[in-house]
Nucleic acid binder design. Structure first.
Lengths: 120, 120
DNA sequence: CTCTTTTTTGCAAATCTTTCACAACTTCCC
DNA sequence: GGGAAGTTGTGAAAGATTTGCAAAAAAGAG
């Protein structure tokens, strides 16, 4: 039985590890076990790259010589369940693995095109 | 004034652990012994997942290697006796167990502003 | 024996996981 | 730029597992 009430949370997304639940913008989303384990592995290292091999080992128990696409499929489903933020949250590090990025507010005045605020 | 030591209660359903009785919308429902024990195990952990293994152990005294469908059968009878709310109250956590959900589950987020920070 | 309660049995149905085939993409090199 | 090679994205379908359920057998109680 689980006991620690640990959860990840930022302004759009919350993960409760004891209830095995995810909320996206206050809307409850149910996760399957593998989805939950994968999300857990990612959020518990939020901001850091988690190599594919590590995920395949910790979530699936696979050895380093197993060829499978199930990780990609689960990543896709997680991204969907994260709503419109999926791509923003789960970043692909090509050739290495994935990284769960905590929510970052929209970039300030970067290389944005000219925005004029009309004053009536 | 008579007092019941332990009882679960929400707006539709009440369980008295000392009297071993259940009321659904003010209407008394008789439970058999096993039904009561199972409901008790669930409501006393209301809102939390109770794994199948735990139920089989605490209610039936079964070990971890027993294969039976009697738990499912009892869950079904309980759901029936909970009237139209059966499905709402007793939630199936696929591959894990069951969870008794208090009526209109409490929201994990605060109503208005929501910046809670959790410990890891 | 009769009635109630509990468990088992055997599928059916629902759910979750993995694979597959191929499209899309990244990187590297010429 | 234009491949080539390797990596990732994706929808659909197969595979595997779990749960729901009805009916009947088994177990108790009076």
């Amino acid at each position: 039985m689980m006991m620690s009430n640990s959860l990840y949370q930022d302004s759009h997304c919350a993960v409760d590890f004891t209830l095995a639940k995810l909320w996206v913008d206050r809307r409850a989303v149910t996760l399957t076990r593998k989805e939950y384990e994968l999300l857990s592995a990612l959020t518990s290292n939020a901001g850091e790259i988690v190599p594919r091999g590590v995920l395949l080992r910790t979530v699936w128990g696979y050895g380093p010589d197993i060829r499978t696409r199930t990780l990609d499929v689960h990543i896709r489903r997680l991204r969907r369940k994260l709503g419109g933020y999926g791509e923003q949250y789960i970043e692909t590090i090509f050739g290495v693995g994935y990284r769960f990025q905590p929510w970052r507010e929209p970039k300030p005045f970067a290389a944005e095109p000219h925005v004029l605020r009309a004053s009536a």
